[in-house]
């Protein structure tokens, strides 16, 4: 960490994640309108603006916003179709909802002074748990007990299979944990690092370096925001494929 100045170098890298009520100073009840609510609502507004208002022309030759929407649609549709197969296409709206929500939340979180909703384990945990539950229930409904063959690696030697089954089982239940922490951790790490460098910028001697670093990290974070949304989505699709076609 940096050397101490007379004012005291104060880091509050995690203060940006504090959930506080938007109006007043009361306790945070489940129905309280907080900054989380505001930025979630802004994500909804952005999505509606792009996909409903942007495409209202239904033009054969698309406008700029409409072609952005179409590119996202085509990209996600192709991903679902390529990775999970034709019969996964009926889950496409579900996956597209996840993808768009995470993408827009990530980018909205990058606006200075904003609140990154996807940096919270509570948010990503719900997303990951929803995916996990959906995929597990779907696997059992579609395949019955044959879904358990996901854990029984039939291509391995018989003696190894119980061991592999335990490993597969553990890795299956670690999925939602890593799924949620990967997204939340990435976003939180990026924002915290930026805040730490912003703290360095208070020291005159290294402030130019700090500002340049913040710029560079910001660029990296833009990339991370898109890549993490993509990774979350494609892992969801891969899990969906496992549920639909459990045979290895």
């Amino acid at each position: 960490m940096a050397t101490e100045k007379e004012g005291g170098l104060v880091f509050h890298p995690l203060d940006q994640f504090i959930v506080k009520p938007l109006f007043g100073d009361g306790a945070v009840h489940w129905y309280t309108i907080t900054n989380v609510t505001l930025w979630l609502a802004l994500a909804v507004v952005a999505i509606v603006a792009l996909f409903v208002i942007g495409t209202r022309g239904r033009a054969i030759v698309p406008s700029r916003t409409q072609s952005i929407g179409e590119v996202l649609y085509g990209f996600t549709y192709k991903m679902v179709e390529d990775v999970a197969g034709k019969d996964a296409v009926k889950f496409f709206p579900y996956i597209f909802t996840l993808f768009m929500f995470i993408l827009f939340s990530n980018f909205l979180g990058l606006i200075p002074m904003s609140f990154a909703t996807t940096s919270h384990i509570a948010v990503t945990g719900v997303l990951a748990a929803a995916v996990f539950l959906t995929v597990t229930i779907l696997g059992f409904v579609k395949n019955g007990t044959k879904f358990l063959s996901l854990f029984w690696v039939s291509s391995a030697p018989l003696a190894l299979r119980p061991v592999l089954a335990i490993i597969e089982l553990i890795s299956y239940f670690v999925r939602p944990v890593s799924h949620s922490i990967r997204l939340g951790g990435n976003i939180m790490a990026g924002h915290a690092v930026m805040k730490v460098f912003a703290g360095f910028a208070a020291i005159a001697a290294i402030s130019p370096i700090a500002v340049v670093s913040i710029t560079a990290i910001y660029g990296l974070e833009v990339l991370v925001a898109a890549v993490q949304a993509y990774v979350f989505t494609i892992l969801t699709v891969v899990y969906l494929k496992d549920a639909l076609h459990p045979a290895h």
Binding site: A27, V28, W30, Y31, T34, F51, T97
Partner: peptide, 30 residues
């Protein structure tokens, strides 16, 4: 702040509301 469990019900509630709205907007209209 991420481990402040007192705020979890609030976040989860609003997240679910958000997701439901986005899902219906996307799947019904967009």
């Amino acid at each position: 702040p991420q481990l402040d469990f007192a705020t979890f019900p609030n976040q989860i509630f609003w997240l679910v509301v958000t997701l439901v709205i986005i899902y219906f907007v996307l799947s019904r209209i967009a």
